[in-house]
């Protein structure tokens, strides 16, 4: 099975002035932009004395310099390029290098692949999502995705939107993605959802079976798109999930609640999860997702298209 691409950062987070530390599971990664503005990624560990490279700096020529003894690395290859005060002896054997990871930038996200040798860069799509942020959630990656499947309200906050337990369609596989559509209500005085005849909005989610990368589309009952969000959960150290997201509003917002989405903070990934509610959440869609994810991973590991490409 090929190694997945993880959307570990927003494009804005990666600069040529300050290294940026992330992790993919237990693997620490440092990102920065080189002199050409290309995002680079190395293991966040100096091969010299194992100091985090992210505590160093980016040199004018685009090399990453360790903040401990000043060793400098080229981002493309990870090769050691400079040791301070070595004067004319700056030629180093090939083993003098930091582990480099494949990097790709598309749609306002920077992705890394921990397997640089076999990684094939995903297609580049333009960035058209003006809202963005990062949330760190004290919940494991799989559990975060399962919560998204069973009750999006536990992990997402969309202004005035109440997520109901009712699915317009069961979770299903479509082009290698896990797709489902959930009925939603506007947060106002109304019948409880179990006694509601018609729902004004739905949330469609398309989720990558391995990474959990999800496109979420909020749509009204006249098929107007109210909001589109891309969610990129990445497993991080200590069971934390880092969720980067970008969102944009629809062009044609009708009704006071839809227009209210224009206000700041209309969309957010929750930093904290209601553990009491999570504990008693009935595993329904996620139960199917577990089986589907396993089927997709084993039967066609490379066919799952990226969420943004499929959209």
């Amino acid at each position: 099975m090929s190694s997945p691409w993880w959307k570990v950062a927003l494009s804005e987070e990666i600069t040529s002035t300050k290294p940026f530390a992330v992790d993919v599971g237990d693997q620490p990664v440092v990102l920065w932009r080189d002199a050409q503005g290309i995002a680079r990624a190395l293991e966040d560990r100096c091969p010299h004395r194992r100091a985090p490279l992210s505590r160093g700096c980016v040199r004018d020529n685009g090399w990453l310099q360790c903040g401990y003894h000043g060793w400098s690395y080229d981002g493309e290859t990870g090769r050691l390029k400079d040791i301070p005060n070595m004067k004319d002896e700056q030629k180093f054997p090939p083993v003098y290098k930091a582990a480099a990871f494949a990097v790709s930038e598309s749609g306002g996200f920077v992705s890394v692949n921990l397997d640089q040798k076999t990684a094939i860069a995903p297609p580049v799509v333009p960035q058209g999502f003006d809202l963005c942020d990062t949330a760190h959630v004290a919940l494991g990656h799989d559990q975060w995705i399962n919560a998204l499947f069973d009750d999006p309200g536990l992990v997402l906050n969309i202004r005035s939107v109440e997520f109901t337990p009712y699915l317009m369609s069961d979770l299903r596989e479509e082009n290698g993605l896990l797709v489902m559509e959930r009925f939603c209500l506007w947060g106002k005085v109304h019948w409880p959802s179990y006694a509601t005849a018609e729902f004004p909005i739905t949330l469609i989610t398309r989720t990558h079976p391995v990474t959990g990368e999800t496109e979420a589309v909020l749509r009204d009952d006249s098929f107007r798109t109210l909001l589109t969000a891309q969610l990129a959960p990445v497993p991080a150290a200590r069971g934390v999930t880092q969720v980067r997201w970008r969102a944009r509003l629809g062009d044609d917002l009708k009704g006071s609640h839809a227009v209210g989405l224009r206000h700041k903070g209309a969309f957010a990934v929750r930093e904290t999860v209601d553990a009491a509610a999570l504990r008693v959440l009935i595993a329904s869609a996620s139960h199917l997702a577990g089986k589907l994810r396993e089927d997709i991973r084993t039967s066609a590991p490379d066919t799952a298209s990226s969420v943004s490409a499929a959209a």
């Binding site: 699915l167 317009m168 369609s169 069961d170 005849a197 018609e198 729902f199 009952d221």
Partner: peptide
């Protein structure tokens, strides 16, 4: 799928086994 009084000129949405 619906009570007759619930259906007018504006489409209402129902599903059977996820088929809209």
């Amino acid at each position: 799928l619906a009570h007759d009084h619930a259906v007018g000129k504006t489409p209402v949405r129902r599903a059977v086994y996820s088929h809209p």
